[in-house]
């Protein structure tokens, strides 16, 4: 059922901009506002956010994690450090990671 919902109405996760929009909805933004905010930060159209071809290019250029791993590409924590800067938000795990390193990134 989860697969059906993802296919029928999901944003598409890291295949598109699903995780980025989710992070803004989690801050209390309604979906339309969250999409506009993320599109503004990415410099793309709102409709591009769920276009996997367009978002692959954008995500690779920003090095913020994609479905396919590539040599030296960021994923997980290293991608989230860039996502926090890109969206201008605090991500709890990034803050914890910085604290562990004992310095600001």
């Amino acid at each position: 059922m989860a697969v059906m919902h993802e296919m029928a109405s999901g944003m598409g996760g890291i295949r598109t901009a699903g995780d980025l929009v989710a992070r803004m909805v989690m801050k209390g933004m309604r979906i339309g506002e969250a999409k506009k905010y993320v599109a503004g930060k990415l410099g793309c159209d709102v409709l591009d956010l769920s276009d996997s071809a367009k978002m692959k290019e954008i995500r690779e250029s920003l090095d913020i994690g994609t479905v396919n791993d590539r040599p030296h590409a960021s994923y997980g924590m290293s991608a989230k450090i860039k996502i926090a800067e890109l969206l201008d938000i605090k991500i709890p795990s990034v803050e914890l990671f910085k604290k562990k390193l004992g310095k600001a990134l």
Binding site: A2, H5, A8, S9, G10, G12, V21, L47, S50
Partner: peptide
Amino acid sequence: NVSVERGNEGIHT
């Protein structure tokens, strides 16, 4: 199976 029109997607939890 059907799906939303392009642009009408929402986030999933």
